[in-house]
Structures are given as structure tokens and as C-alpha cells.
Design a binder for these strands. Structure first.
Lengths: 194, 194
DNA sequence: GTAATTTCTTGTCATTTGTCAAGTAGTTTT
DNA sequence: AAAACTACTTGACAAATGACAAGAAATTAC
């Protein structure tokens, strides 16, 4: 038997449906494990996996014009991982996604989920709720970038996701926050003073 | 007869479906017109309208901690307008949405669209495509904020949406780009020099 | 366990953007 | 047409953040 109760719980938390429907949806996901520093999605490839991250940390990144890696998102346990433009519009991904730590996840392929999406109303609602959550999360990040200083963004991350500070190297966090790692280092020093 | 060919065209451009299905979906939208400076969605209210903006310009904004308006989004013709968290999660909106110019739009209420969503597969696909587009658009804005300087963000807006520069006051554009209006004014001066 | 590598911090100085205040130009109101 | 208001620009200076280089600390590889 699959030990997928965390996935089932996540589905039910994302959209309120019966235990039965949640188990049915979860049954279509397969367990996947990754070692750390595994490149799961490479720029130029089409993202075929719709992943639930059960444990571990991942990040997505792009290369800027000078070839530097820019961390566009950090993924922590108990959330979905996919590159929205590539997965839903079936286009080559502009982003890379890699594991930061060892990870365990549950995932399914685009084609099999398309069928399930059409046949199971609860899965449609779940899928829509996941899209809405992702949309809101990037919208909040945009608004945070235009309304808050780097220090406030850092402090918010620290209070909302202290675990990320523990498992993810600061250079990735700095990039995710839109600053350099030296600036982040200075913000942290100032923060300790207070 | 409704003169809704632009809406029908938009639906078909967003997700490829038959003329018949597109017309059926469009038939559920009602024409709405607004004068300029109309507050369409007020903070604290639940966003009940799912709008297609046919002509005119709108913006969404929030009040920051000092009570200043921050323009979070600018809407131009031929796009959907809704506050995603309020509309899809049925929660009080944190944002205000107002018209900048006179506007004509097509809209429908949440409840009637919920029915249509369940009964018409093409409408579900359209709705999903709209969510995906909005998600991508905020994701790109976040990445733009962390990878580009204000000047590059301005130049991109200028080249991609010169119409916005024509119809939307610079103070809203500055705020949307995450800078002050004096900074934008200086960037524009530097830009002319080149 | 030592060497190699990566991560993080710190110093110095440059650049970008903000703040505030004043002024000009354009638009709306009466 | 004058007055009032709004939009935009500009100047002087301050604050935030970046660039680059060096070094310390931690982690990984051998």
C-alpha cells in the first residue's frame, strides 16, 4: 500500500472533498525520490511532471544575460512543484528546477492527469485551487517587491518560513529576494543588532 | 443582438474552441460601461464580476502602511479583469479596482459562471487558460523585479505597451514599476538622451 | 584528517533610487 | 479668463543596494 496520507491530506486542505475522492486522486500519483543537487527540469525541456513535494527543498532558477543563476522560486515541503507556462501551455521551459536537499515527492504525467481532469470533477477543482494559490503567491511577491524594502522582505520570509533559512543556502535566498548575497549578509547583521 | 465579436475572438484566442462554443460562452456575458474614475471593486468587498475589458484602461491598487496608493496592476483593452483571491476564494478583496478612462466591458457573476463551468467543458478550459495566463504574467513580473533595473522595466513596458504610456498617468506607471514618480521622470529624461 | 571547495561575511567605493521641496505646464472648475 | 487642481519635472541631498575583492567559516571530497 502507498503511504500517501500526507498527499491525501494536502489535497483535502487545498479543496474540501470526500476522503474517497481525495484517495482516488492521490492514487494516480507515483512516489519519486531524488538525491540532492538533482536537475529535475532543464531549460528547453517541456515540464511533464505535476509534483507534490512531500519532504526536502527545491528551487527554480534562470540564467540572466550575464549567465548568472537567478533563483526564481524556492519550494518547501507540502506544496506543488511545476513550471506553469511549460506544464500548462506545453512549451519549452525557460526555467531549471533542481533539488537543494534530498527530496521525496509524488508526481504524475501531464497526459494521465488530463484524462483524470476531465473525468473527475473533484480533480478539476483541486487543480483549479492549485493554480489559484500559485497565482496569488506570485501576485503577493510582486506586490511585496514594489511596496517593501529588502529588509522587510527578508524579515517576512524569516517569520513565515524559518525552515527555509535553515535548509537553503543564503545565496539562493538573496537572489529569490532580489538582492545580492553581500547585501543579505549586511541585512542579517543589522537585524541581529535590533 | 449583442455586438460581442471582440469577446468571442478573445475567447477563441485564449483557448481554441469552436465558433459555436465561443458564442455560447460569450452569450453569458453582459455589456457594462463605466465612466472614468469609477471605483468598481472596493477593498473589503467580495469581487463578484468576472470581466472582459473591451475598451479603456483600469488599475488595481492597495493602500500601503502610510496610506499611500500603490498601483498593483494596470489593465488594458482585450484582457480579463478580476481580483483572483477574492473572486476564486470568495474572500474580501485587499485591493481596489478603478477605471482610469471610460471603459466598456463584458461581465458575468460568480454564481452563474460556476454553473456554466460545470456544464460546459470548453468554458472550463477557457477559465483555466485565463488563470494560467494571469499566473504567468505575475510570475514574469516577479522575475523582472529581481533581475532588471527600473530603467529596463520601464523600457520593456514602453516597447510592449506604448498605449499604456499614452493613457495612464505616469504616477500610476511609476508605482506599478516599483519606483517613485520622480525617479520615473528622471529615467525618462535619461532615455531621451540616448 | 587534510585539502579543496563552497558559503558567508566584511570593507571600500560606486550606482541606483528615495525624499522633500520647489517650480512649470497642463487641465478642470467656476 | 482666473483660480484651483493635477501631473510632471527638476535640484539637492540621503538612504539603499550593488560591485568587487579579500578573508573567515563551514562543508565536501579525497
Amino acid at each position: 500500500m502507498k503511504n500517501n496520507h500526507l498527499l491525501i491530506q494536502f489535497i483535502k486542505n487545498t479543496y474540501p472533498i470526500s476522503d474517497y475522492a481525495a484517495a482516488l486522486i492521490a492514487d494516480n500519483f507515483e512516489r519519486i525520490t531524488y538525491t540532492k543537487h538533482t536537475l529535475m527540469l532543464k531549460e528547453g525541456k517541456i515540464n511533464s511532471d505535476y509534483l507534490y513535494l512531500e519532504s526536502g527543498y527545491m528551487r527554480s532558477y534562470v540564467l540572466d544575460t550575464e549567465g548568472n543563476e537567478v533563483t526564481t522560486n524556492i519550494f518547501k515541503p507540502n506544496q506543488m512543484v511545476f513550471e506553469v507556462a511549460s506544464y500548462f501551455q506545453r512549451k519549452p521551459s525557460k526555467e531549471n528546477i533542481e533539488t537543494i536537499t534530498e527530496c521525496t515527492a509524488w508526481g504524475g504525467k501531464y497526459e494521465s492527469f488530463q484524462k483524470l481532469f476531465h473525468s473527475l470533477p473533484e480533480f478539476r477543482e483541486f487543480g483549479r485551487a492549485v493554480l489559484v494559490k500559485g497565482f496569488i503567491s506570485f501576485k503577493e511577491r510582486t506586490i511585496s517587491m514594489i511596496t517593501e524594502k529588502a529588509e522587510q522582505r527578508y524579515e517576512k520570509l524569516l517569520s513565515e518560513s524559518p525552515d527555509i533559512l535553515q535548509y537553503v543556502p543564503l545565496k539562493y535566498i538573496a537572489s529569490y529576494l532580489g538582492i545580492t548575497d553581500s547585501s543579505l549578509s549586511r541585512l542579517r547583521k543589522d537585524f541581529l543588532r535590533k
